[in-house]
Amino acid sequence: MKDINAFLKEVKQHPYIIIGGTIVIVAILMSLLAPFLTSFNPTNVDAKNRLLSPSITHPMGTDQYGRDIMSRVLFGTRSSIEVGVSVVLLTTILGGIAGIAAGYFPKLDNVIMRVLDGFMAFPGIIIAICLAAIWGAGKLNIILALSFAYFPKMARIVRSCVMTVKESDCVESARSVGAKNMYIIFKYILLNSLSPIIVQATFSFAMAILDEAALSFLGVGITPPNPSLGGMITDARDFMAVAPWGIFFPGFMIIVIVLGLNLLGDGLRDVLDPRLQGKY
């Protein structure tokens, strides 16, 4: 890892990190402050005010049930971010354990990697859809389904880092003085593998938000009437000709958040990867 001061200096100068980080921070703040940014309950039905166009009272209009779209977008964003953070944490833990075990212990490598190869033979979204269909809709089930779909890629990245770091001089020196395996793993292996893990985590975050919206769109995501960006698009598609704002605003929020996370991930990759120095 780089010196922390040098790292922070490069982060402040990198346009992708500044733009992407700003977008992500604003989205998180909007989701956290959702109860204070709108006076409407996202699940309250008001049939008298259905399909209203954007106005001062309803800045993003209302849906076919008269629910305020702005409040649903804000609370839906909160749900998406909660899913994304949870998936990243579980993916990093599961992928880290599997990757370290495969990369550091040669006897386990072949067994673990063949199992992970079986997982990666299918697109992650297909695995997530199958697991969500088996376990049922709901936020917890979506988090578990997406985590199982994503962790093989994280495991392969961690394994690659471990196999490189474990042959370094510092690890050989630690072994020569009798250091235990767990000490070497936590002291040297993990610390020198953080850069690619952090970058992959940002991309996993973006994919989790995108796939959660896709699962909700298909009806196996967050259960209604709880707001979900993908579910809002599903509900509004039958009325897109007369009320296009019902699709535009949740879709635009998904695009902006995923764009911000991808920019942040690209920027962190540029800063943390020494092979890319001076190319931005």
Rank of each mutant, 00 (worst) to 15 (best):
M120I: 13
D235C: 08
K166R: 15
I247D: 12
W245H: 15
V85Q: 02
I28Y: 01
S53P: 00
S204T: 15
I134K: 07
A241H: 11
R78Y: 12
D235L: 13
N226T: 15
R275A: 13
I257K: 08
P227W: 01
R175V: 14
S195I: 04
D63R: 03
V115T: 14
S147F: 07
P35F: 08
F122G: 09
L210D: 15
V165Q: 00
L146Y: 10
D109K: 15
A133H: 09
L52D: 04
A208D: 11
F205W: 09
F148Y: 06
L32Q: 00
R78N: 12
A236R: 10
I112A: 09
M154F: 12
A132N: 14
S173Y: 10
T62N: 00
G103T: 10
G95T: 07
T164S: 14
I134G: 05
A213F: 08
L259S: 10
D109F: 08
V177F: 14
F239A: 13
V258Y: 00
I198H: 03
D238E: 11
V258C: 06
K139W: 03
T92I: 09
L191F: 07
V242R: 09
S168H: 13
G267D: 07
P15W: 13
V111R: 05
V258H: 01
L33V: 10
G103Q: 12
P227M: 06
Y150Q: 15
D109P: 04
G260M: 04
S228Y: 05
V162P: 05
D266G: 07
A101S: 15
F249D: 06
R50V: 02
S86D: 08
I129V: 14
A214G: 13
